[in-house]
């Protein structure tokens, strides 16, 4: 465990708390893509299936439980509690275009052709692109509530912080995980446009608005 990794994980935790806070205080899930949230549940369940057969640490155990539980809770909030505030007509990204390629890629590029290993690889590829329905929705509406942009910034920061973490581990532990690194770079890259607007507008006190 190094500082980058820890800050990354904390940023990930923060993003989830921000999202739940946004939904509960505004009593609305407006501006949040249900599809992206559903993809995250898929990602966590597929990856953390190893809770059943691999013990790493107490930290690791509780984080995994938290990510699965909180993502399911968010789906519940969106699907039942605040259902009327979700507008499916602007959340129209075709998730099969993400799930399909993630399945195919994980069957081809993996470390070992074993069921749980392929599930892990699938979850890595799927996570890399899971934010796309959310970003697509943002692009479509052209604006976002400030709190929603904080959620996305924390989520992007989590991924960005994993990169120095890998560099650090390369030098100190002599390990490289090409699958995680390539997928992680792609995932972080997807946030670049968003970060640009976030830093130049939201952090300057302006509303998040995309040029027409």
């Amino acid at each position: 465990m190094n500082l980058f990794r820890l800050l990354g994980d904390l940023s990930h935790l923060a993003s989830i708390f921000i999202l739940i806070h946004k939904i509960q205080t505004t009593r609305s899930c407006r501006g949040i893509s249900f599809q992206t949230q559903a993809l995250y549940v898929t990602v966590f369940v597929a990856r953390y299936i190893d809770l059943f057969f691999r013990w790493i640490s107490l930290y690791n155990f509780f984080m995994k439980i938290f990510f699965i539980a909180s993502s399911v809770y968010i789906l519940y909030l969106m699907k039942y509690r605040y259902r009327p505030t979700h507008d499916p007509s602007i959340d129209t990204f075709k998730v099969e275009y993400l799930v399909g390629p993630a399945v195919v890629l994980s069957l081809i590029f993996n470390y070992k052709f074993e069921f749980t290993e392929i599930l892990w690889t699938f979850s890595i590829y799927l996570e890399a692109v899971a934010i796309l329905p959310q970003l697509f929705m943002l692009q479509r509406t052209g604006e976002a509530e400030t709190i929603t942009t904080h959620y996305l910034a924390a989520l992007g920061a989590y991924r960005a912080l994993y990169i120095p973490n890998w560099i650090y581990r390369y030098f100190t532990e002599d390990v490289v995980d090409p699958i995680a690194i390539v997928a992680g770079l792609v995932q972080t890259g997807l946030y670049l446009d968003f970060f640009y607007v976030y830093f130049t507008k939201v952090l300057q006190g302006q509303k998040f608005e995309l040029p027409a």
Partner: peptide, 10 residues
């Protein structure tokens, strides 16, 4: 470096 998956990450 060992090309090993770092499965201790989240």
């Amino acid at each position: 470096p060992r090309r090993s998956p770092v499965k201790d990450e989240l």
